[in-house]
Structures are given as C-alpha cells and as structure tokens.
C-alpha cells in the first residue's frame, strides 16, 4: 500500500478537481484544445469520466487556465464553483455533513480527492479552529492561484452549508495581490504577509448546524469512502515528508531517519525530493518555520523553548534562522 502519491502518479480523477477548471474555461468560450494544449489531457478522455491524471498535468492545466483567463478573478471563480462538484462519496461526506466540524474533518480526511494539490490541515485550540494549507506535491508557480482557489472554495462551501456568512479570518504568506478580490470574496479580515497560509474561525462556530446536511447520509458516505478509498495514498509526497518531519519533532530528525521510515535509501529519497523540486533541508526548514510561527503566535511559547524543540543551538541561532526564513525577527510577529 502506498502512503503517498508522487507528482507523476496518475491519481487525480479528471472529472473531479480538474473538471472545474475545464468547465470554467469552456463557460468563458475558451476552445478546449487551446486550454488542454501541452497538458496531455484529451477532451474525449475527459468526457468519458474514466481519466485519471498526474498532479503535474493538473498544474499544467492551471497554467493554461491562467494563460487564457488572465483576469484576477479566475482563481476565485474556480473556487466558488469547486464544491459540491462531482466528487463521489467524498463529496457527499463533505456536503451532507450535519455540522461545520464534520464538514471540515471530511475535507481533511479526503483532501487527496477534494483538494489534491493543496493539503488542508485542521488544528484546534481553545479559541480558534485553524485550517492550514500546505503544498501537496511541489512548490509550484501556481501556489498563489491554488491558495486563492481553495480558500474561496471552503469559504463558499461553508456559507452554503450554514446558510450564512462566517467570520473567517485569512492569513496569506505574501503581500496582498488582489485586495479588491479579497474584499469581495473573503470580506475584510485578510492578513497579508504572514509567512503561512491559513484561515481561522472562532471555535464555537464549528458546531453550527448545516440545515441541508444529513448525519446518516454523511456517515454512509464516510463508510463508502473507507471501503473504496482505503487503499488510496492519502497525501502528496511533499505533504507526506512534511508530515513525517512534523510528527518527529521535537525528537531527532534527519534525512536518514525519514528515508528509513519510508523504507527507501537516503539516495532514493534525495532523488525523489529533487523530482518534486525540493530538497531535505528545505522541507526541514519549512516545517520548522511553520511550527515556530504556530508556537509563537498561538501557544505564546518563548523563543528559548522553541529553539530547544526545533534543535537550534540557542535562541540566537533561531532568531537568525527566523530572520532568514521570514525577513523579520520572532519578536515582530
């Protein structure tokens, strides 16, 4: 059984996630063969509903979509249209969830179907529910597009499930690129330049009922998923490696240890990471950056403690690394 999928494993059903992009382009009168040029996807295969494509083909499709629909609102439109879509039982588990909590849990559990290129991670504390978004298969040129699309998709879905707008707060890693799109699609709680991608909601709202949901339907859909999808890899390779590292911390982490866990030689792991446009130190630094920010802002740990947990010699070294990762000192957060 495979635990992860590679950037070139054919795992994404073309009629699920990619369909929304093809559909959007067609509704804007873009010729299908122009849109699919260079992606290795053919319209007839797509329409057969049997086609599975590789994550890299899906990324190429996003590239083409942006080329032919260069307007700033493309990602947001695609996000609004993504759910309920045609996602089989995973989609049913999502849209029939009886409350918001179960919807977000379904999104996380079946992320490899519902959002195969950007992996959601739900994290709760006493005050807020955070939904973090991580790279799934590769650091790509389209990560901003995917971010905008997926966060809009979740916003739109939750509004639809609950029947009212929710006070989501958004955290973006870079500067605000399309403030007008954020204002219209997400509202006025958008925090740019935060070095991570997440959205959060007051935790109390997770128990909000979804009037159109049905607990029994959702339960059946989940059972169906377990039966038919149990053997499917649940995470993209990069997300899987990041998860390994995150789980091991604050214990010892090294390329050899992770390779051992994946039952492959360190050389193979190196080669695989290279294929996904990354390397071990980059993964290790990314996870440590995310954890450092999380612990600083949510757990209010002090820098000494974090340095210890993340294997820095002392807090001065952590401060220097943090400055390198984010451009600011930990105290500036």
């Amino acid at each position: 059984m495979n635990l992860w999928y590679d950037i070139d494993s054919p795992v994404i059903a073309a009629h699920e996630f990619p369909a929304v992009l093809i559909d959007l382009a067609c509704s804007r009168d873009i010729e299908p063969d122009k849109l699919l040029r260079g992606t290795g996807i053919f319209m007839d295969d797509f329409l057969s509903g049997q086609l599975t494509i590789k994550p890299q083909q899906c990324l190429a499709l996003i590239g083409n979509t942006q080329k032919w629909l260069p307007a700033a609102d493309t990602a947001f439109l695609a996000g609004h249209r993504l759910y309920p879509g045609n996602f089989g039982p995973a989609g049913t588990a999502l849209t029939q969830a009886p409350n918001l909590m179960e919807a977000l849990q379904a999104l996380q559990a079946y992320g490899f179907i519902l959002t195969p290129l950007l992996t959601p991670r739900l994290s709760l504390d006493s005050e807020f529910a955070y939904l973090y978004w991580h790279e799934s298969c590769a650091e790509s040129a389209h990560s901003a597009f995917l971010r905008h699309m997926m966060m809009t998709a979740v916003t739109s879905l939750c509004r639809r499930l609950c029947g009212l707008s929710l006070p989501w707060e958004y955290f973006l890693p870079d500067e605000a690129q399309h403030p007008e799109q954020y204002a219209v699609n997400w509202g006025n709680r958008v925090r740019a330049g935060r070095h991570y991608t997440a959205m959060r909601l007051p935790r109390a709202l997770l128990s909000t009922n979804c009037p159109s949901g049905s607990a029994s339907m959702a339960m059946i859909a989940r059972a169906q998923c377990e039966r038919t999808l149990g053997s499917r890899p649940a995470l993209g390779f990069i997300a899987f490696i990041d998860q390994c590292i995150r789980k091991r911390l604050p214990g010892h982490v090294s390329l050899e240890l992770v390779a051992d866990e994946l039952q492959m030689s360190p050389a193979t792991l190196k080669r695989k990471l290279k294929k996904h446009g990354s390397h071990f130190q980059q993964r290790y630094d990314t996870v440590r950056k995310e954890l450092a920010i999380e612990w600083l802002t949510r757990k209010q740990l002090d820098v000494e403690e974090i340095a210890l947990r993340l294997h820095f010699h002392d807090s001065r070294n952590l401060r220097r690394a943090f400055k390198r990762w984010t451009g600011v000192l930990p105290s500036a957060l």
Binding site: L164, P167, L205
Partner: peptide
C-alpha cells in the same frame, strides 16, 4: 466605502457573530 457597504449588508443579512 467598503466598511459602510459591509455595515449595510450586515443590516440586511446578519452574519454569524
């Protein structure tokens, strides 16, 4: 103008607080 607009929207369809 955006703030005023959101206030007007809230009057019509209250958001979850």
């Amino acid at each position: 103008a955006t703030l005023r607009l959101l206030a007007a929207k809230d009057l019509k369809a209250p958001r979850a607080a």
